[in-house]
């Protein structure tokens, strides 16, 4: 059980890199800066806090995945290339300790700037908006950390699976494009192949929405609704349940998205662990 030492060392190491400081700066700017936009645009006094919160959501959803992937993809393969893995594994650490320690350490690298960003952003929001909702803000913070964890886990799984940084980068970038950016084309293409027409927004078959939701980005948006009370979310039902034709199957309910999110944490890590466990380190 030496993963804690690995995590601490990893965080100290990564924390001394410029990366952490750039991330912190970026997140503070993002949270404090972007959330101020509704205030700036509002002409009639202080706008409601919820507006600021909605404004925050999109940039977080865009930035955190990239941050998580960048922070994670070198975690293990980088040590294999530099040779410092010989220290890690020459000391009494199992390969599982290394993987777990790296997961905790790198997640902290994403989480610590997030905490700072949310603390500074919270001050700005409280000053500029009417009715600071601490619960919703905490929910968005928790969501951001979970999101960071998911993408760190995906990148770490890749990092543990391959033997060069270049390969890790290639796999991570491909995964990001295929399962996140371009994923909606997959159900759309299948739909088109079956129906010879394009899907609309509503009255969609359950399989279509489920396939769409398998992407980590989609599953995360679904769980965000379980963590944060966004204004307007109930007016237009953007959830899968609101778009399905007929009965809502359980796997399209928002709570089930947690299962998909957990799978995106544990499946990449599991594959990474098995490949790393059996890797010969020359």
């Amino acid at each position: 059980m030496t993963w804690l030492h690995v995590a601490r060392k990893d965080f100290q190491d990564a924390g001394r890199s410029r990366l952490l400081w750039v991330l912190t700066g970026l997140l503070v700017l993002l949270i404090a800066g972007l959330s101020a936009i509704p205030y700036v645009l509002a002409s009639d006094g202080r706008p409601a806090f919820e507006n600021g919160l909605v404004f925050l959501y999109s940039p977080i959803g865009f930035l955190i995945p990239i941050v998580g992937l960048i922070v994670g993809y070198r975690a293990i393969v980088g040590e294999r290339e530099s040779g410092s893995i010989r220290f890690l594994l020459g000391l009494p650490n199992t390969r599982r300790d290394v993987l777990l320690g790296k997961l905790v350490g790198r997640t902290a690298v994403v989480a610590v700037p997030t905490v700072i960003g949310f603390a500074v952003g919270g001050l700005v929001l409280a000053l500029l908006y009417e009715g600071f909702a601490f619960g919703a803000y905490l929910g968005l913070f928790a969501f951001t950390v979970v999101m960071g964890l998911v993408y760190v886990a995906i990148a770490l799984g890749v990092s543990a699976s391959v033997d060069s940084r270049a390969k890790a980068l290639a796999v991570v970038a491909t995964l990001y494009v295929v399962v996140d950016i371009a994923w909606s084309f997959v159900p759309m293409s299948i739909y088109w192949a079956l129906e010879r027409s394009f899907p609309g927004f509503e009255n969609l078959p359950a399989w279509y929405l489920f396939l769409e939701r398998l992407s980590p980005g989609q599953a995360l948006s679904a769980i965000s609704l379980t963590l944060v009370d966004f204004v307007g979310a109930e007016d237009i039902d953007v959830t899968a349940a609101g778009r399905v034709a007929g009965e809502v199957p359980f796997y399209l309910e928002n709570w089930f998205a947690w299962v998909i999110v957990l799978a995106w944490i544990f499946v990449p890590l599991g594959i990474g662990y098995l490949r790393f466990r059996d890797a010969t380190l020359n």
Partner: peptide, 30 residues
């Protein structure tokens, strides 16, 4: 490895960590 001290070949150090941090890590892990 709990009872063995290892000086590996072709190892790399953690460039950003001090000598003390390296040894601290070894001492803690052991």
């Amino acid at each position: 490895r709990q009872r063995t001290g290892v000086l590996p070949e072709d190892f790399g150090v953690y460039d950003r960590l001090t000598a003390r941090k390296h040894v601290e890590f070894a001492v803690d892990t052991k």
